[in-house]
C-alpha cells in the first residue's frame, strides 16, 4: 500500500496576520520531515493543518493511497498525533483512556494491543491510576500510546520529547525510527538532535524571508 501526503501551496492567516504561505511538499512511505522555526512561526499550525484539525486559508492537503484520494472525513484512520496541547481525560485511568479511544476507533483485539502499547511506553505498572495523578512525562507517554494504538501510517509529533526523561527520549527515538520504516514521520521541533532524525527539513522562518525577498543562506 503506497501512502502519499501532498501539501499544495498551503497558506494560513489568522485575520490580517499571515502565518505562512507557499508550503509545498510530497511525502511517501519511508520518509520523514522536520518542521523548524522560531516560536510563533506556525509549526503547530502547519501540523494541525496536515492532520486535518485546521483548514488552510488557501491551498490543499491531500492524502492518497495507491493514487486514490482519501476523503478528509477518513483522515483520522491514518494519523497518529502527539502534541503538548492534546489533552487526555484525567477522570479516567491510563488504561481507560486507551480503551475509550480503541472503542471509538473500532480497533479490533484492543485489549491485547493496549497491554502491548502500555508496556512499550512503560506505563503498564501505572495503568490503573487516574491520569489526574500522572506526571507531565507520564501523560506524554500516554499520548504516544494513544497515537500508536491504531498503527498509523502518518505519525505527527509536535515537540516530541517535551517533559520526557532520558529513558522517555530513547523511547521516542525508537518510535521515530520504526515509523520511518513503515510510514511517514513529521516532527515539529527546534532541537538539533530531533532535526537530525528527519531526512527533510522545512524552516518556516526561511520561507518567510524568501517571501519577503530577502536572501537566505
Amino acid at each position: 500500500m503506497e501512502f502519499k501526503l501532498i501539501c499544495k501551496d498551503i497558506r494560513k492567516s489568522f485575520g490580517r496576520l499571515l502565518v505562512f504561505e507557499s508550503i509545498n511538499f510530497e511525502l511517501t512511505n519511508n520518509s520523514s520531515l522536520a518542521v523548524a522555526g522560531k516560536n510563533g512561526s506556525g509549526k503547530s499550525t502547519l501540523l494541525k493543518i496536515i492532520a486535518g484539525l485546521l483548514s488552510p486559508s488557501s491551498g490543499e492537503v491531500i492524502y492518497q493511497i495507491n493514487g486514490k484520494k482519501i476523503d478528509k472525513l477518513d483522515w483520522f484512520k491514518f494519523v497518529g498525533f502527539v502534541a503538548p496541547y492534546l489533552q487526555l481525560y484525567d477522570e479516567f485511568t491510563g488504561y481507560e483512556n486507551l480503551e475509550i479511544l480503541a472503542k471509538i476507533r473500532g480497533v479490533k483485539d484492543y485489549k491485547r494491543k493496549i497491554e502491548d502499547i502500555l508496556k512499550r511506553v512503560n506505563l503498564y505498572a501505572r495503568r490503573n491510576d487516574l491520569v489526574r495523578g500522572y506526571s507531565s512525562g507520564m501523560k506524554q507517554r500516554l499520548k504516544y500510546a494513544c497515537a500508536l494504538l491504531h498503527d498509523p501510517i502518518l505519525l505527527i509529533l509536535d515537540e516530541p520529547t517535551s517533559n520526557l526523561d532520558p529513558e522517555g527520549v530513547e523511547m521516542v527515538w525508537a518510535i521515530a525510527e520504526e515509523q520511518k520504516k513503515r510510514g511517514i514521520l513529521i516532527i515539529a521541533t527546534n532541537e538539533p538532535e530531533e532535526l537530525k532524525i528527519c531526512e527533510e527539513v522545512i524552516n518556516l522562518d526561511e520561507l518567510k524571508l524568501k517571501a519577503k525577498g530577502q536572501i537566505v543562506k
Binding site: L73, F76, L86, Q87, L88, Y89, D90, L101, I104, R105
Partner: peptide
C-alpha cells in the same frame, strides 16, 4: 474547556 476536543477530532468522524 479541558482541551480534549482534539482527542475526539483525531479519533472518529464528526457525525459520530
Amino acid at each position: 474547556d479541558r482541551g480534549t476536543v482534539i482527542f475526539l477530532q483525531l479519533a472518529t468522524r464528526p457525525s459520530a
